[in-house]
Nucleic acid binder design. Structure first.
Lengths: 149, 149
DNA sequence: TGCTTCATGTCAGCATCCTGACATACAGTG
DNA sequence: CACTGTATGTCAGGATGCTGACATGAAGCA
């Protein structure tokens, strides 16, 4: 492998490094979740459902930052594997609340552990205070950006 | 619009916020670049070529964190619009160095300004020191992650 | 020299996610 | 009550990115 040195000025751009970090994290999560036959989107959906049972498709989509249509596909795949169960009728509006099945919760537990390991790896060498500052700073960036829609 | 309050525990996960920030940034860049008829990938390619003329397809792909195949398509689109020019023959190996055309550089200048504005918006209210710490922390995260391939 | 290894460019197929569109269900207002 | 606006689930089509595969060119080594 011909190791390539870093690129230069672009490395100093926040956006560039942010994208690089997101790509690296996604790759690591993919690797960690592959043994469980879960994609990152599927895991994100399960995790959200674990924390907030009864979320509808549209709510899940917003929580995972994808479109309703994409989340719909994810949800169908999970339903086919009996990891989640969707209500057959809509108790309010057109919302179809979704919940984890027992199998879904079991798989989620394993997946959460795997993802936690990834996050621990990622944050190795960072103090809790520094992690918190990272969180806070990113939150500021997010708010600054979606203030301009 | 029924404003939904924040989700809860997942918001405390570094990975979650990181993904959210990357999505928000990409959206803002898309908006900023749309008037120039450039996608984020195309802009990234131009920016990299502007800073490092003569990069090959594979080198560009690594720099933008996409596959060679994807970068190949981006490059063809840019070449069709006469924004870049690829060498017809390979001076070394199979590498085909690419450079910006005059039109490409002009468009890149406009695009750079638009993206800089986005970055400025994103970092509003952050001191230079805090931006630098963000950069440093993310760099640590990246190194931690790709140390496990 | 020949063999192995690696990197590159490119083709093909597949997966994922998006936008656009439509019908339905509820809330608010006249 | 009818009308408007908003939110949801879903279908269709298209854009984008990926993996797998192949042939070519260069470098290293026996």
């Amino acid at each position: 492998m011909k190791q390539r040195e870093t690129l230069g000025p672009v490395e100093n751009a926040v956006g560039y490094v942010l994208k690089q970090a997101a790509v690296a994290l996604r790759g690591a999560m993919d690797d960690a979740l592959r043994p469980l036959h879960l994609t990152v989107s599927q895991y994100s959906c399960l995790e959200l459902l674990g924390q907030r049972p009864g979320l509808s498709n549209a709510e899940l989509a917003r929580g995972v930052f994808v479109s309703r249509q994409s989340m719909n596909l994810v949800l169908r795949g999970l339903e086919e594997r009996d990891l989640v169960a969707r209500a057959a009728t809509a108790p309010r509006g057109r919302e179809l609340p979704t919940e984890l099945t027992a199998a879904g919760r079991d798989l989620l537990d394993a997946a959460s552990a795997a993802v936690l390991a990834v996050q621990t790896t990622m944050c190795a060498g960072l103090t809790v205070a520094r992690q918190q500052e990272l969180l806070d700073t990113l939150t500021v960036c997010i708010r600054n950006l979606d203030g301009h829609p």
